[in-house]
């Protein structure tokens, strides 16, 4: 709470849990991006993905973009792209399940479980954001009775009888 604020309730906020979730996942993306870009060799060793260091770096770039998008005003498409990224990560990590090293297979299993969790969270948040922002179809109101002109006027725009009406070829004087 800001020091100038005396009290405030969460119910009085404009942020929905979908928005807050997107922010949280956006910052998580930055953390993953940093790990993927700065320590791809270590990640490859941990999960038995040796030789795929450049792919891991590319995942880092993708996480960076997804993170920036998730923190933006248009977080829903970024969250869907995060979910798509999760699927690609799962597919890549699943290839390491064939590792002969039991320890690495355990790491992969833990990593896959985490990624599935991320996928579920990202999907729920993306869907939630979409529903929060959507407009109800077919329920647009008709405001054709709101002319704003209490006195009746002719249907054409020109010659409406306004006191300020200009004469032919003569600009309206500034006020």
């Amino acid at each position: 709470m800001n020091p100038a604020t005396l009290s405030g309730g969460r119910a009085d906020r404009s942020m929905t849990w979908g928005m807050r979730g997107a922010r949280m996942m956006g910052w998580a993306s930055f953390g993953l991006a940093a790990a993927f870009v700065l320590a791809p060799e270590r990640i490859a060793r941990t999960f038995g993905l040796e030789g795929k260091e450049n792919l891991i770096r590319a995942f880092g770039a993708q996480e960076l973009l997804a993170g920036m998008g998730s923190l933006s005003v248009d977080a829903a498409p970024a969250m869907w792209s995060r979910a798509a990224g999760d699927v690609v990560h799962i597919g890549t990590l699943a290839t390491a399940l064939r590792s002969p090293d039991e320890g690495r297979r355990r790491n992969v299993a833990i990593g896959l479980a985490a990624l599935v969790g991320f996928l579920a969270v990202d999907t729920v948040i993306a869907a939630r954001l979409g529903s929060e922002r959507s407009r109800a179809k077919g329920e647009q109101r008709d405001y054709s009775d709101r002319s704003g002109f209490p006195k009746s006027r002719s249907p054409a725009a020109g010659g409406r009888g306004g006191r300020q009406e200009a004469r032919e070829g003569e600009p309206v004087p500034a006020q």
């Binding site: 800001n2 100038a4 604020t5 005396l6 009290s7 405030g8 309730g9 009085d12 906020r13 404009s14 942020m15 928005m19 923190l71 005003v73």
Partner: peptide, 15 residues
Amino acid sequence: LVWHGKEDIRHETVP
């Protein structure tokens, strides 16, 4: 109504 950041407006008690 108090601004706290992007998309974050709150109805609060202030001085």
